[in-house]
Design a protein around this nucleic acid. Sequence first.
RNA 1: GCCAGUAUAGCUCAGCGGUAGAGUAGGGGACUCAUAAGCCCUUGGUCGCAGGUUCGAAUCCUGCUACUGGCACCA
Length: 518
Amino acid sequence: MKPFLITTAIDYTNAPPHIGHAYEKILADVLARYQRQQGREVFFLTGVDQHGQKVQQSAEREGIAPQEFADRVSEKFLSLWKTLGISYDAWAATTAPLHKAAVQRILNDLKERDWLYKATYSGHYSVRQEQFLTDKERGPDGEFGPEWGEVILLNEENWYFRLSKCSEWLHGFLETRKDFVTPDFRQTELKNAASKITGDLCISRPKSRLEWGIELPFDTGFVTYVWFDALINYISFAGYGVAGSSFETLWPADHHVIGKDILIPAHGVYWPCMLHAMGFSDEQMPHLLVHGFWSLRGEKVSKSTGNVVDPTALAESYGTTALRYYLMRDAVMGRDADFSEERLLLRHNTELGNGLGNLVNRTLSMTRRYREGSPKSVPLPEDLSAHRSADVESMRSFVTQMDAAQIHAGIETMVDLVNRANALVESSAPWKLAKDPEQADRLDAVLATLILSARAAATLLLPVAPDAATEILRQLSLDPAAIAGEIVVEDLPEGYVCGEPIPVFPRLELPVVEDAAA
RNA sequence: GCCAGUAUAGCUCAGCGGUAGAGUAGGGGACUCAUAAGCCCUUGGUCGCAGGUUCGAAUCCUGCUACUGGCACCA
């Protein structure tokens, strides 16, 4: 089987990361870890988009070089990914020489095959804002408002990509490849939108206006603009066009994980058309996994209202485990979700602490108390055999759900498994069995079954909360259960002795808010 | 203007033609291995509104409302 290639959007290095950035990377990370757990080779690519006007302007404001500014912001992303345990295999920074070379090779090739041309555009231009204006910027009276300053008519030469040449192909492709985009309603949206997109794509900026970009190899007065730089990271960092690289086995991407904001037109129209122009076949087109947005207490997250959630602060307050778990648990794949710290605590304290953590704790405690950590291997009574079969069913469901990128559903399966195990503790009441010598065998069987359920739960938690799940397995003195291929529950290994229980999910509370006015 | 999505218990959501469901929060109970966790029972909803199709609609159709998003326009 080909390696699993998963990418995220590359983040723009103009502003520090917010909760949405963190969500997307955790989402990709969970899928990557799951695939590794399945025994599949994984190439997980993420990175930063460092070029462009905003970076150039921000750097100028601070009186430093754009590279320095971009590096400084990139550092914040890198540090956050380290905190959150994002297990990427390659880092796509668009100022890397490898990437520049790939972009220029592709541009040269497309130009030679007449996919690019130069033309003059004429339009209203705001000198103050350094941008062309469209009808959108006109006020109700049809005039451009005072915020634009002096507006002049300007002619500007630029390079264009013959996007219109692809429209027929794209239409057919979207008809044929029904699963190009997940979730499916996004593909419907894309189809509707794509049919309306006409004209070609401007891919350059004159250096007079923007210097901070990749120079066009055939016209050095221009740099590449946005998409012909940023999108290409998906292939350049996978080794596209590099002799002896593993690109041919890696491509196509199993998931481009992106937010709903950049599906149309960038990833849904430009990107497949660019690949098509480069000569990629329909079978070599990637798959897009589109996630929703997080709002904050019902309000849209926006920098202007200042309600930006800082993921670094969250990770510090509540820990990586709780944050990763909550974000994956509470967002239904593809849909928007509402962020609140109360819900984060609720999910962590009830499902992880009271549910899984307590199961591990009470199981280990009883095993040590009644059997010195080593339950004997005995024939299984029917009810416990049925319990283990149910665990197998849960693990199978989990695999199906994770294969479909339904992480929230996979977590729910884990929670169900834990609840079933906690119910088994009550119904079998090991503390009563321990008092009755005739029930000795049954006690051994119950404890072993509970240990195996705890292992199964930790195994399912592993991609979502690797640190916590690893710690549980350490306490259980077991390796993760095998969930690739045919799934079975094996009995405890010969000479098994469990470890000591230590709470893995300490109860979290809202921090006491200091009254600033006091 | 066009095209979607969402609207079900306080909260998060499932159900998508056949007597309203889960988790969580609230109430009660029995237990004690455990992070005062867990388990059992329970309160709680004219399924956004109005019509229609049907023996029967949360579920299908039409209209409306609210919220969210996409496109028409980004050179």
